[in-house]
């Protein structure tokens, strides 16, 4: 059996691990709430842009031609899925869960689905499993800016407009609270402003009161269709930005939970090993006493 000294060494090293995982849990908790604050701060823009979108889409001359980013196509021949995962592991089942829901979604689609990955974990998993990955993004900073999102939105909108994809979806993990996360697959393009359920990160516009919005009278500069060209892509960018922030909040909270579990496990191990160590010490003392007693008896 292990000696007292060996056990002491092991207890100390597990103590060190517990310290690291404990610190990581605390850092992750604060990062999760920061991402959550960041996504909450987009509410003002999201609500107003959504209102304006509704008004514009209802204007005569827009509805008849239909803005390409708002109009569903009749024949769907291909789709894109933007998959949002993390770069780093140690986050429990966070990445696995969102990849599983993405795979389920792809299998359920009747048309070929090409994948755009955000985050190294998703990239590696999707490529290993043989999916057609057409673009990959990684190193999304913790302090996410809309500028980090623009290239992703660019690929999605451009390829959609060039009919390389007839629908664009996004798979991300919705942050509910520090212990609850839900992987979701939602439609990004074409934008369906009336379909709250199917819309990505709809929770940030669901409180908007749309009654009477379509009838509001504005003068338009330039005409409504040209305004839509400005408003719709920005709304898509915003949805992507919100989805990545939701995913980041989820990643950090998943890591927090995983690290808390690791810290608890370490504490349990330390308890067990301490008991072992005390037994070992007791035993060596006992055997020393027996030696002495035995020696004394032999002399006596």
């Amino acid at each position: 059996m292990a000696t007292e000294r060996e056990l002491n060494k092991r207890i100390k090293s597990i103590g060190n691990i517990a310290q690291v995982t404990g610190a990581l849990a605390a850092v992750s908790a604060s990062k999760a709430s920061k991402s959550q604050r960041q996504v909450e701060a987009t509410r003002a823009y999201a609500g107003k842009a959504f209102e304006i979108l509704h008004n514009l889409a209802a204007q005569p001359g827009v509805g008849s031609t239909g803005h390409p980013l708002l109009t569903a196509r009749e024949a769907i021949t291909g789709a894109y899925l933007i998959l949002i995962t993390s770069d780093r592991g140690l986050a429990g089942a966070y990445n696995t869960n969102v990849v599983i829901s993405a795979e389920k979604f792809i299998r359920a689609m009747d048309v070929p689905v090409k994948v755009i990955t955000v985050g190294r974990k998703g990239r590696d998993l999707m490529i290993r499993r043989g999916y057609d990955v057409i673009a990959t993004f990684d190193n999304m900073p913790d302090d996410l800016s809309i500028l980090d999102i623009l290239p992703i939105a660019r690929i999605a909108t451009n390829d959609y407009l060039e009919s390389k994809a007839d629908e664009v979806f996004i798979a991300y993990t919705d942050f509910v609270n520090l212990v609850t996360r839900i992987p979701r697959v939602k439609q990004l393009l074409p934008l369906k402003p009336l379909d709250f359920e199917g819309m990505a990160v709809a929770e940030y516009v669901s409180a908007v009161d749309l009654s009477g919005v379509s009838e509001r009278v504005y003068s338009y500069e330039p005409e409504p269709a040209a305004l839509l060209d400005v408003v719709v892509p920005r709304f898509t960018q915003l949805q992507l930005y919100q989805a990545v922030l939701e995913a980041q909040a989820s990643e950090h909270s998943a890591r927090m939970v995983a690290m808390n579990n690791a810290t608890d496990n370490a504490a349990e191990l330390i308890d067990i090993l301490t008991l072992e160590r005390n037994k070992a010490r007791q035993m060596s003392i006992t055997s020393e006493i027996l030696d002495i007693v035995g020696g004394a008896e032999a002399l006596g």
Partner: peptide, 21 residues
């Protein structure tokens, strides 16, 4: 800038698809 970064993302994906991750 966006287009350039978007193109880089495509090139990266192509490379990984061919060479593996």
């Amino acid at each position: 800038i966006d287009i350039e970064r978007a193109e880089q993302a495509r090139t990266r994906a192509e490379k990984y698809m061919v060479e593996g991750v």
